[in-house]
Design a protein around this nucleic acid. Structure first.
Lengths: 272, 272
DNA sequence: ACGCATTTGTTCGTATGTATT
DNA sequence: TAATACATACGAACAAATGCG
C-alpha cells in the first residue's frame, strides 16, 4: 500500500493532513480500533508498525526491516520512520541496537529476569527466586475474572497457583488466570517442565506477548490458607498486588493476584 | 561560554568528539559530578541546560529561551538543541507548549494535584484529600534519617507528621524529614497556613524542586498509635510507603514514610 | 476580527560518525 | 576491509498554536 499517493508530496506537500486520508482509513479498520482521522505522518507510520507487530509479521527477538527499507516501503523519509521507531522503542516494544538493527522486544533475553516483578530483597542484589507450582486447572471464569479479562462470563480460563521462594523461604504466592482459548494445551505438566519466567513461556509457546501491565497494590491480612503457604502467622500483613497484563491493542490477557511477604523484601518503585 | 570554539565546526566537523574537549571540562566542574569526557553534542547541550536549571538561571514555571536562541547561544543547530530538550522533557524537567515555548516544569500548576501520590480510590475519580497537620518540630537527624538524606549524623532536620483524609476518614499518615539547612523558617505555622501540595510549598518558598523519587513499599501491621490516628484496629494491615525524593544532581532532599489505609483505596502502578 | 510574528511540531534531505558483521 | 544499520548533526521548509497589535 502506498502511503503517499500524491507524487509531488516530497517537494510540495509536507502537511500531514494532505496525505492522511488513505492511511487513516486503513488504520480505522485495524483491530486497535478507530484512530483519529488525521495524525502526523510519523504517528501513522507508528500505527502501521504496531499493526505489523500485532499481526506477527515480525516475531519477538527478530529484527524488523532497516529504517531505509521501511522508509521506501512507506514512501517517507528515513527520519520519519526513525521518529516512529523512537516512540515504539520508548514504549519497550522495539529495541534498537546500533550497527545491528531494530528488534522486536522479547521476554526471552532480558537481563533482568523479571521485567515485571518489582520485588527486591532489602539487602543484597536482585531477587533470585525459585518457582513451585501448586495448582493448574481449567475452569469457567467467575464474573470478576471474566470482567478483568474482558471475556463473557463463564468462558473457559486457566487458573494457576504457584509459590516463589527465596531459598527455603516462601516470598510470593501467585494466583493467575488466563483466557483458555488463547492458551490451548497449557496444563500443570507444561508448567512443571518449564524453566524460566512465565511471560517467556507465553510468548514462545502461545504467541501471547505481554507489553504492559497495571497493578493495584494493597495491604491485606493473610487468610489461614495463605498464611500456611507463605509460612506466616494468620492475619499477618501481606502486600496484595493485583495485576492486569495487556498485549497489543490493550487487550487484557492475564489477571494475576500476588501476595508478597515483605519482611525481608520490598516492592520497589520509581516516580518521575 | 562558547561551546564550539573551532569556528569551522558547523561546516566541517560534525564529529561530536572533535569539539567535546572544552565543554567536557566545563561539565567536570559542575555539581552533578564528573561526566564522560566525550559525549554527543546534544548530550553536552543537555548537560548545559541541566546546569542552568540547577543554578536557577530559569525558574520553575518560567520559559527557557527559544530553541533558536539556544542554538545560537551554543553555536549548534536548532535540531541539536531540540534533541536535548526532548530528553529533558521526557524526564519531566521541562514542558513544551506549541506556539508558546518551553517551560521549566513546576509543581505549581499540575492538573494532577498529586504527581507523586499514587493512591487512588477503589471507586470513583481521583483522590480529593484534606490535609491535617499533626506535628512539626526541629530535631537532630537520627542515624537512619541522616543516611537517607546524606547528611552527617546529628544534623538539624525538620520532622513533620500529618494526616490525609477522604472526608471524615483518615487515609494516609505521613511522617517526613527534611534537611533543616535547606528549609530555614519552616514551622508548624507555615504549614498550617499553606493550602496545596507540600512540593509546591518547597518549590516556591524554599527553592527546593523535587524531580524524582524512589519508593519502597511494604505491608505492615499498625501500631497502637498509628491505628488510633488512622482509625483502624491495632495490628491492621497497612501499606508502608517509604519515599526518598531527589532534586537536581540526585541530591536527596526528603525522606517520607507514608502509612496508607487500603480498604477503600489502592496504590496504582503501571509497568511497561 | 484579522493578520502578523514568534515558537514549537513535522518532514524532508544530506552527510558523517560509530558499531557490527 | 567493506557493507550494513543505527546514531548524530546540519539545514531548510512548512504546519499549527499562540499572542499581540
Amino acid at each position: 500500500m502506498s502511503l503517499a499517493q500524491n507524487p509531488g508530496m516530497a517537494e510540495t506537500a509536507h502537511s500531514p493532513r494532505a496525505d492522511a486520508g488513505p492511511l487513516a482509513r486503513a488504520e480505522g479498520a485495524a483491530a486497535t480500533g478507530p484512530l483519529p482521522a488525521f495524525a502526523p505522518l510519523y504517528q501513522q507510520i507508528k500505527s502501521l508498525l504496531l499493526r505489523s507487530l500485532q499481526l506477527g509479521e515480525w516475531q519477538p527477538g527478530q529484527p524488523i526491516p532497516s529504517e531505509m527499507d521501511l522508509a521506501s516501503r512507506f514512501k517517507v523519509s528515513q527520519g520519519t520512520v526513525r521518529k516512529a521507531i523512537d516512540e515504539l522503542a520508548a514504549e519497550n516494544l522495539l529495541v534498537r541496537r546500533q550497527g545491528k538493527g531494530t528488534f522486536v522486544a522479547t521476554h526471552a533475553e532480558e537481563k533482568t529476569q523479571y521485567r515485571f516483578l518489582r520485588l527486591a530483597p532489602d539487602a543484597g542484589g536482585p531477587a533470585q527466586l525459585q518457582r513451585r507450582l501448586l495448582d493448574c486447572r481449567r475452569m469457567r471464569a467467575t464474573a470478576e475474572v471474566a470482567a478483568a479479562l474482558q471475556l463473557p462470563a463463564g468462558e473457559p480460563v486457566v487458573e494457576v497457583r504457584r509459590l516463589l521462594l527465596d531459598g527455603e523461604r516462601p516470598v510470593v504466592l501467585d494466583d493467575l488466570w488466563l483466557p483458555g482459548a488463547a492458551f490451548k494445551g497449557l496444563d500443570a505438566e507444561t508448567l512443571q517442565r518449564w524453566r524460566g519466567p512465565l511471560y517467556r513461556l507465553f510468548e514462545s509457546e502461545y504467541s501471547v506477548r505481554m507489553i504492559r501491565a497495571e497493578e493495584q497494590i494493597r495491604a491485606v491480612a493473610a487468610s489461614a490458607e495463605e498464611a500456611a503457604l507463605l509460612q506466616v502467622a494468620p492475619g499477618a500483613a501481606l502486600l496484595s498486588v493485583e495485576r492486569r497484563s495487556f498485549t497489543y491493542g490493550d487487550r487484557p490477557v492475564e489477571l494475576r493476584r500476588g501476595l508478597y511477604q515483605t519482611d525481608r523484601h520490598h516492592y520497589r518503585n520509581v516516580l518521575s
